[in-house]
Design a protein around this nucleic acid. Structure first.
Lengths: 209, 209, 209, 209
DNA sequence: GATGAATGAGTATTCATTCAT
DNA sequence: CATGAATGAATACTCATTCAT
């Protein structure tokens, strides 16, 4: 009688308990990823997603309190996939040239997962808090990967310069890969080769600056 | 390849013949660019643009049959501005290192024109025809600039390899600059320096492949 | 006139025969009353009620065919509580002034049971059948109480005039008490005093008309 | 180029300039009042109001930024009507009995304007700020009318007791009139007579307390 | 019986576009 | 030509209710 009734607002409105509902949630996220990749942010409407997922709009809102939280789930899943690929590359104590090869292969593979979705997630989807730099945790781990590589060339010393070089390197690679993804030339061997050259030559040159 | 961009087929319902009309059209495009840059694609509504332009919504539709054609006009104007800057750089017969410097400076300057608008135009605005490659004419002249530079290093010989290298180079530079624009570090001198190193080292390395 | 309220025709899909069922129904009605009182009609959703009651939405619909019948049950229970308080006052052959005191005290006590619920039930809950006069049976017994009091002053003679005076008296008292409930001054002694004066003076004046 | 584009949020989105639009606004408010009175808060949907008004839902939102502001406009208009009637009564230096007659007549007339709307506005429509006491300005002027009357009986002396008596008096009269409105007996002469007796006797009695 | 996943009609609100004045 | 009032399809989200497990 005494405690007040309150409405909670959590990322996922209801944890799916039964197998059926877990499948529903999966279907919704999957459909959301497809819609976002194929139709872009403009075509991403909750009703469309529910349709594609083959569930009613009500079911969608049973598990996701709003559009935002659905996007968040899609983002989380995609970036988890991406990071798991990235983490696998760069392990061990290989020679530098091999590391770069691994990196480039890894990055290309990563973007092969779902390039369109990746681009939409990074470019089109508006940040809800108005920040211009969303995906915080993702970006930092991602960047870290490059910074480590640069440090590797410089006796594992990390400083401001290393950070900048890492930044430049990562955005250059990103640029090349995104562009190739847009053109559908992501699997071209020449591209892969050129990218390796780009990275190696820059790593070599920026070393003695 | 570098001829002026041809007027496309869709655009104006009525060519503005009189001075007043031309001023109105100008005001609308200007307002559109401002709205797009400041509020992003999500905030770009025809009514808002008309408001900011200080004309009635009816007048806007007098000159632009739909939202798409307005965007097209804004895009055209912005990319014309961009190209005019690009054309100025790379002229003459300077030594290579100077050419690269010119290029990098030029590109950075170009993105300084209206970075927000540039980004929105490239990333947020959806392609109306579903094409993944909008800005066709713009991109080709833009790319050409890089290809010429690459050719310059290889006895002015243009072939498939040159094209690819040009492509990689341009997308790498684009990637770095856009990323910097997002972070607001476009004017940093270290960045500029690193970018020059990146281009130079790649040009040198890809030469002897 | 003052016979027990008859069970209406619509209400329970299934009469709870076993102890557990009765407990479930009790819990639902209790939860419904709490939700209605605390969150108002706007916050009264069947899912919320089921949640608070600690039963599944399915169980709720096992016992109540629709929202309306649940409201009806809540109403019935509350008004039964109210009437049982009212019945206790006014018994016996006390002097008039004491009777009025009893009445006023009783009415105020009644509204103290669950003032928020009372108000919501009377003011917010829409009449399902479009009638402007819900609570029919309740109101009549309630009114009867006042009519009896008026009759007491007039040699126990009941006629049209008595009815009208009873009506005026009851609605005046109701008005004062509801208003006080809204303002939270229900327990103020001055109010109680003024209310007694109001009733006494009106009873006295309307006598010699 | 420098000042930021802002979206304003004012009570009325757009001031109607032409005669046509003023008529539209009038029609919407009128329809809103009808819907609210006839269907209650539960039946008051923006689409229904637009339908009844014979305008499109878009037109409604052209002038009222949201449901709330429409309600506010309806409320304002109704209470203005009510207050203008109230202000007319109680003027001049008539004998007390005549003043009471004026008051009662005025109040009854006031509730005859649109009793259903009045009740819904007071009881059903939720307060947007969560306050339990909306209609602030209205209620205070309304109450003031009664307090003045009470003061008149007590050598025009206003104090805490006067306030309370005014409050009791006003809520009693309100209660009687609202109840009569619900029953459709607002125009009954007996009722009017009884109400006058109620007020007079209470004023007399509470005088010597 | 009990559960809770699923449903979908209904609600507030936006915005590109038309057209009478 | 210019204006701005009017339109209505589309969108995010809610909640009473059903039904398979």
């Amino acid at each position: 009688v005494s405690t007040r009734i309150a409405k909670s607002r959590v990322p996922m409105r209801k944890e799916p308990r039964q197998a059926r509902s877990r499948a529903t949630v999966e279907a919704i996220i999957e459909a959301g990823a497809r819609v976002l990749g194929e139709l872009g942010w403009a075509g991403f409407t909750t009703n469309t997603v529910a349709d594609i997922a083959g569930v009613s709009i009500g079911s969608l809102y049973q598990y996701f309190p709003d559009k935002h939280s659905l996007i968040e789930a899609i983002r989380r899943r995609h970036f988890d996939d991406v990071l798991s690929v990235i983490r696998q590359s760069g392990e061990g104590t290989k020679p530098l040239s091999e590391l770069v090869q691994d990196l480039v292969h890894g990055m290309i593979e990563v973007h092969g997962i779902n390039p369109a979705l990746h681009r939409v997630l990074l470019d089109e989807v508006p940040a809800y808090d108005g920040s211009r730099l969303p995906h915080g945790e993702f970006v930092s781990e991602y960047l870290d990967h490059y910074v480590k590589l640069v440090a590797r060339c410089r006796n594992y010393e990390r400083n401001a310069a290393t950070e900048i070089v890492g930044q430049v390197l990562s955005s250059a690679v990103e640029g090349v890969i995104h562009n190739a993804a847009r053109r559908g030339t992501l699997k071209s061997m020449e591209l892969r080769q050129e990218l390796i050259i780009l990275v190696c030559s820059y790593l070599g040159a920026s070393d003695h600056q």
